[in-house]
């Protein structure tokens, strides 16, 4: 299954669950909320990266729910240091294994290094460390759990919070419609670093997510995956709608699923006819205060962004020139 092939993975949908690993790497007993989309994503990402991996995790919901001493939900070796430095810790891990391997102190293949952080830990406070790590070209995979706010500290806005959403620091009011800015495009920022593999994913599309993560960890050099993770607590949505909401985010074009391989965009889940964003918004209490004009605005913006994405997918040239093959003494 090393060759990634979305079309055939789609066909598997009916029976392929038997092809996916049964081993659990993010085990039950952790304390995430009911219906947590982030925990679902973690579980499947950990299956995809497999046992020969080492994880550096940022402070945030997934760290807090899983690692209260003396318990742990993590089967893979795992380290948490702080909120904003996960990419730097991962850089160190990768460099550390590299030198040990070079000195013959590490039998076998060095473990795959995977960094994980929330949207706040990625697109806000951790952006500098992430940029540095991508620019330096470490061989690692960075996964962003995007639940569109600082959930661990009580649903404060981040730069990844969508326009119009209510959070505790972007409350709607007489002079506020909620979050006043458009969601930061972290994927484009990652692509701008000229790294070989970037993708979006969502655990509502399990196979798509699974194969993207597999591909990311197999890709030499930095890889970045941005995972939309529905958070019923922060989104004010019903806990049994988590998977549904992820689907709707994709079907409305709010969160398209695509890959950027060596600078070339392509959709992995093609939605020929997008649903109206209202279908997605109306199931979430965080958008409850929005009225028609704001919803219309969001609809227009979503379509405009989607359109631009399609253009990027059709572009005859990549976002950056391919790295010309040099003799790498590795």
């Amino acid at each position: 299954m090393d060759k990634f092939d979305v079309a055939s993975s789609q066909k598997y949908d009916v029976y392929a669950s038997r092809l996916l690993p049964k081993e659990e790497y993010f085990v039950g007993g952790h304390r995430s909320c009911q219906g947590c989309g982030e925990a679902l994503a973690v579980r499947w990402v950990c299956k995809a990266i497999g046992k020969d991996a080492v994880i550096a995790h940022a402070t945030g919901c997934m760290e807090i729910v899983s690692s209260g001493f003396p318990q742990t939900a993590w089967v893979q070796p795992w380290i948490h240091v702080a909120f904003e430095n996960t990419a730097a810790v991962a850089s160190g891990l990768e460099a550390g294994y590299k030198i040990l391997a070079r000195k013959g102190k590490l039998p076998g293949r060095p473990p795959k290094v995977v960094a994980m952080a929330g949207d706040g830990g990625t697109s806000d406070i951790g952006l500098q460390a992430l940029s540095g790590a991508m620019e330096r070209g470490h061989d690692f995979t960075y996964i962003c759990w995007d639940n569109e706010a600082y959930m661990n500290t009580g649903i404060q806005r981040s730069s990844s919070t969508p326009y119009g959403a209510m959070t505790t620091t972007s409350p709607p009011g007489k002079r506020s419609i909620g979050q006043a800015t458009w969601k930061k495009n972290m994927v484009a920022i990652a692509v701008a670093h000229g790294i070989p593999y970037v993708a979006t994913a969502c655990p509502s599309y399990l196979f798509d997510l699974y194969f993207k993560v597999k591909r990311a960890v197999e890709t030499p050099g930095p890889a970045y995956i941005h995972i939309l993770s529905v958070c019923p607590t922060g989104w004010r949505s019903a806990t049994d709608l988590t998977v549904r909401l992820g689907r709707l985010a994709v079907e409305t074009g709010v969160f398209p699923l695509y890959e950027v391989v060596d600078g070339r965009y392509h959709l992995t889940i093609d939605i020929p006819k997008l649903r109206p964003v209202k279908d997605y918004l109306k199931l979430q209490g965080r958008f409850r205060h929005l009225r028609e004009p704001e919803i219309d605005f969001i609809q227009r913006q979503v379509l405009a962004h989607y359109d631009l994405l399609l253009k990027k997918c059709e572009a005859p040239y990549p976002e950056f020139p391919p790295l010309s093959q040099t003799e790498e003494g590795e």
């Binding site: 380290i79 702080a82 430095n85 810790v89 160190g92 891990l93 460099a95 550390g96 030198i99």
Partner: peptide
Amino acid sequence: SACIGTSAA
């Protein structure tokens, strides 16, 4: 932070 990483490796 990277030093913690290399040391943990």
